[in-house]
Design a protein around this nucleic acid. Structure first.
Lengths: 230, 230
DNA sequence: GAATATATTGTAAAATATACAATAATACCA
DNA sequence: TGGTATTATTGTATATTTTACAATATATTC
C-alpha cells in the first residue's frame, strides 16, 4: 500500500519503558546511560524511536530487548506523551510502558547505544532528560493504582517467595504499612498464592514458608471485573 | 529546529474519541458518518489525523471540536493503538480518548468531513471501520473501571439531577443493579453531592429532590489515592 | 543452652455491606 | 374531591469485612 496515500504531517514515534524491579532494599527502576544524542551521557528511561514494520506492542518489546537484553517481561501500556517540544530534534510522540521484572531472573545487558544500565531506588531517581521524570511519575501512580486491583505484584517477585517479602513489596509500592496478621489473612483469603511446602534456607533465624503465585486462574478477566482490593 | 535531525521512519498520528452521553434511555456513544476516505459512508468514531503544531491533548480537543462542535468537554486519554495494518492507507498510530458529556448541554454540529453525527445506544453499535470496535470496547472497560473509583459520572449528568438518575447512570455503566436504599446511603455518605433544596417539576408523580455535584473538593488528587468504590 | 532474629497465629470490637418493604408526595382522572 | 397511578423516600436487623492488638514458635549462632 502506498504510504503517500496519507497526505499529511508525519511524526516520529518512540517507546519509553519504565522497568520496575524489587529486592530486599525496595522498589527500583532501571535506567540506561545514553551513548547517543540528544542527551548523550545522561541517565534516562530505556526508550527509542521505533520503525514502521512492527505493531506497537512488539516495538515496545523490541526497544527494551535491544537496550537491555530483557525479553519476555510483563509489559503494559501506560500513556502517550505528545507535547510539541518534548524532543529537541523534532516532533516525537512517545508511548510509555511499564514493565515488571524479577530482578534475580534476568541479567541486564546494555547494548545498542545504551552504554550502561543500572537499577535506581525509586526514591533516588536523578533528573532525567526529555519528559522522563513526568513519565516516571505517571508510571508510579499507575503501578500504585493497578497493584491494588490486580495481582500483578507477583511479576516482581521470584517464583518462590515468603509472605514477608510479599508484604514488603506491597508496602513499598503503596507507600504504607500493613499489620502482619491482617495482611496475611487477607492475602491468604484470596486464592492467589499457594504454600509450596518448601522453606527458606541459609537464613540465620526461623526460616519462612515459601509460597508461589497461582497464575492460571486469573487470565482472561476484563480489568473491570477485578477486585483484588488490598 | 530542523525536523530532519531525526533520520527515522515517520508515521501519521490520529486521535479517536469515544464520546459517551447519558439520558433516560441509557448510555450512548456519539458516532459520525464519514464523508471522506477511507471508509466513506460509514459510521465511525469521531477521529482524525492530527497536525504537528499542537500538543497531543490539544489536538484531541481540536479533532472533537472540528467534527462535532463539542468544546470544553471532559476528556481523558485511554490507550494508543498501533497495529501495522490498522489503517488501509499506511502506518497510522491512533491515540484514543474518552469524553463524557452532558447531552442536554450541547448541540452537536457535524462539520468538516463529518456528514452526520448521532447518538447510538451502547448496546446497538454497528460494525465500525478501522479498529474502532476494539477501541470502543477498551473505552467501555476503562469507563467501567474508572467510574467505580473516581467521581466522573457527574460529567454525564445535568447540573441538577435526581438520585434516581444517578443510580440509573451507575447501573447502565456497571451493568448491574443496586438496591435503592443502599445506593442512596452510600452515595450520600460520601461527600460528593449536595441537596440543592430544589425539586423536579413537570413530572406526573412525586417530584424528586435535585442534587448537584461538589466539584471543587476533588481536584488535584492523584488517581492512586482515590477510593470512590461503588 | 542461652541469646538473637524473624515467622507465625487468633480474637474481640468496630465499621461496612447487605437484605428487605412500608409510607410519602405529586398528578391525573372519574 | 376523593381515589388511583406513579415514583420518591426512608430504617433496621443481620452478615461480612476490617481493624487493632501481642504472645509463641523455629531456626541460627555463640
Amino acid at each position: 500500500m502506498d504510504p503517500n496515500l496519507i497526505p499529511f504531517f508525519k511524526a516520529a514515534v518512540s517507546v519509553d519503558n519504565v522497568v520496575f524491579g524489587f529486592d530486599q532494599s525496595g522498589l527500583k527502576v532501571l535506567l540506561i546511560y545514553r551513548g547517543a544524542d540528544p542527551y548523550r551521557n545522561c541517565w534516562a528511561l530505556p526508550g527509542d524511536l521505533i520503525s514502521l514494520d512492527s505493531d506497537l506492542s512488539s516495538s515496545a518489546e523490541k526497544v527494551l530487548q535491544d537496550l537491555t537484553g530483557l525479553d519476555k517481561v510483563y509489559m503494559e501500556q501506560i500513556h502517550t506523551f505528545g507535547k510539541v517540544d518534548r524532543h529537541p530534534f523534532g516532533r516525537v510522540f512517545t508511548v510509555a510502558y511499564f514493565a515488571l521484572i524479577k530482578i534475580e531472573d534476568y541479567n541486564i545487558h546494555p547494548s545498542s547505544w545504551a552504554e550502561e544500565a543500572a537499577w535506581f531506588p525509586i526514591s533516588e531517581i536523578p533528573d532525567l532528560p526529555f519528559d522522563h521524570n513526568e513519565i516516571l511519575l505517571f508510571a508510579k501512580d499507575q503501578l500504585k493504582t493497578k497493584i491494588r486491583r490486580q495481582p500483578i505484584g507477583f511479576e516482581l517477585l521470584p517464583k518462590y517467595f515468603t509472605l514477608t517479602e510479599l508484604q514488603k513489596l506491597y508496602e513499598s509500592i503503596l507507600e504504607t504499612e500493613f499489620d502482619v496478621r491482617n495482611f496475611r489473612k487477607k492475602i491468604l483469603s484470596m486464592d492467589f498464592i499457594t504454600d509450596t511446602g518448601l522453606k527458606q534456607s541459609s537464613v540465620t533465624h526461623r526460616p519462612a514458608k515459601l509460597f508461589k503465585y497461582n497464575a492460571k486462574k486469573y487470565s482472561k478477566l476484563s480489568s473491570s471485573d477485578f477486585a483484588f482490593d488490598l
